[in-house]
């Protein structure tokens, strides 16, 4: 592993204890998660897999402090985030967690450069710090020449790479990706996954991504399978990073 700016020890970056999440729509209750426990360590490259409705996205949202569990506890870097209020969760997300979404979640009025810069602006970093970091990230996702392009001037794959760079901007401990290749064709999907894998290896940042694409699952060191709101399989066979191939 080349760089290790995030990976300082083998501590858990997130831990989930017997988490449930129930959604209410009128009088109808849907149990998205039914008592899930899980631990993810620093530097892991983990896939959450399972059919639609299995609870992958809900689990990512709880780990990402976008949502609160109905019961159970979620820890990020050892801190219980289950009962944080809206602002506290925003603070936690800003400094600790990066997001990559299925839709290319960039702000359409901002350039690639400005999209990557945005989380750092929210962190209150200086202009020179931001400039240096953005240029470094643009280079790492091979988009230096697209810095001043707006999202509608970029291909889907390029947009998703900008989203990856943005997720890394504040040097988070954890990056959560929800179906990052679902809207991409095969070559672009492969490029995105290769970028994520490389950055995981270079920087040591933990990646957890939800997918049901078998081509993507191959990249994962660890595969957690969910079904009907429960973890049915926790496959850590690929945890040895050397086994992860960059070729599909």
């Amino acid at each position: 592993m080349a760089g290790s700016e995030h990976k300082e020890n083998n501590m858990e970056v997130t831990k989930i204890e017997n988490v449930t999440r129930v959604f209410k729509t009128g009088k109808v209750e849907t149990q998205a998660l039914r008592g899930v426990s899980l631990s993810i360590e620093n530097g892991e490259f983990t896939a959450l897999v399972g059919p639609s409705g299995s609870g992958k996205t809900t689990l990512l949202q709880l780990i990402g402090c976008l949502d609160k569990p109905t019961s159970g506890r979620v820890f990020i870097n050892g801190k219980d985030v289950s009962q944080l209020n809206r602002n506290q969760r925003a603070d936690m997300r800003r400094g600790t967690i990066g997001f990559i979404f299925q839709f290319f979640a960039l702000i359409p009025t901002l350039t690639a450069y400005e999209n990557i810069e945005l989380p750092m602006l929210l962190m209150g970093q200086s202009a020179s710090e931001r400039r240096e970091r953005v240029m470094q990230l643009l280079e790492s996702v091979d988009l230096t020449d697209r810095a001043i392009y707006r999202p509608d001037q970029l291909s889907g794959g390029q947009q998703q790479r900008v989203a990856i760079a943005r997720a890394l901007a504040t040097k988070p401990a954890l990056i959560l990706a929800d179906e990052p290749t679902a809207n991409l064709d095969t070559p672009n999907g492969r490029q995105v996954m290769e970028t994520m894998t490389r950055l995981n290896q270079e920087t040591g940042v933990t990646f957890v991504f939800a997918t049901h694409d078998p081509r993507v699952i191959q990249y994962a060191q660890r595969v957690i399978t969910l079904r009907d709101g429960l973890i049915v399989e926790n496959n850590i066979e690929n945890k040895d990073e050397e086994k992860v191939s960059l070729e599909v």
Binding site: L66, D91, R94, F99, F101, F103, P119, L122, R166
Partner: peptide, 16 residues
Amino acid sequence: TREIGILSAIGMKGRR
């Protein structure tokens, strides 16, 4: 709405 969700996800507080 979705952009507001993105801004919120990357840590923009409601106040901002």
